Amino acid sequence: MVLLICASFVRVQRHNIFKKRLDVHGKVVNAPKPDAINAPKVQKPLQKHGGRLEHNETYCGSCFGAESSDDECCNNCEEVREAYRKKGWALTNADLIDQCHREGFIERVKEEAGEGCNIYGKLEVNKVAGNFHFAPGKSFQQSAMHLLDLMGFITDSFNVSHTINELSFGAHFPGAVNPLDKVTNIQKDLNGMYQYFIKVVPTVYTDIKGRKISTNQFSVTEHYTAGDHGPRFVPGVFFFYDLSPIKVKFSEERPSFLHFLTNVCAIVGGVYSIAGIIDSFVYHGHRAIKKKMELGKLS
Rank of each mutant, 00 (worst) to 15 (best):
P136R: 03
H172A: 15
F18G: 00
T203Y: 05
S161C: 10
F260R: 13
V177W: 05
P136D: 06
P32V: 01
K297C: 11
F64C: 11
L123I: 04
C77P: 01
A226T: 07
A129L: 10
K122R: 14
R52F: 05
I289D: 12
P179Q: 06
F173S: 09
N131L: 15
H25C: 08
C100K: 06
T92Q: 11
L243V: 05
I154P: 04
H101W: 04
P202C: 10
Y120Q: 12
S8Q: 06
K212V: 01
N16A: 04
D149T: 13
G170E: 01
D98N: 06
K249T: 12
F238N: 14
P255T: 02
I106D: 07
D207T: 10
S273R: 14
F250V: 12
Q13N: 12
P245V: 08
G50L: 08
V201L: 07
N16T: 07
I154V: 14
C73K: 05
D228W: 09
Q13V: 04
F240A: 06
V160K: 13
S69E: 04
S280G: 14
K291A: 00
Q187G: 05
K297M: 04
L123H: 10
K199G: 12
E72K: 13
L96Q: 11
P32T: 04
F105P: 03
V10M: 09
K44Y: 01
D207V: 13
V248Y: 01
A83T: 04
N126P: 01
A275Y: 08
I274Y: 04
G175P: 09
P40Y: 05
Q13K: 09
F250Q: 08
V109C: 10
H223D: 09
L295W: 13
H172I: 11
M151L: 13
V177R: 08
D156T: 15
V204L: 14
N159R: 10
I97W: 07
Y224R: 05
D279C: 03
N118W: 08
G88R: 10
F238P: 08
A176H: 00
F158N: 06
E103N: 07
G269L: 03
D242W: 02
H284Q: 06
G152H: 10
A31R: 03
K188S: 15
Y241D: 00
P34F: 13
V201R: 12
V271M: 05
S139D: 00
Q187K: 05
I154K: 15
F250S: 11
P40H: 02
G230T: 01
V268L: 14
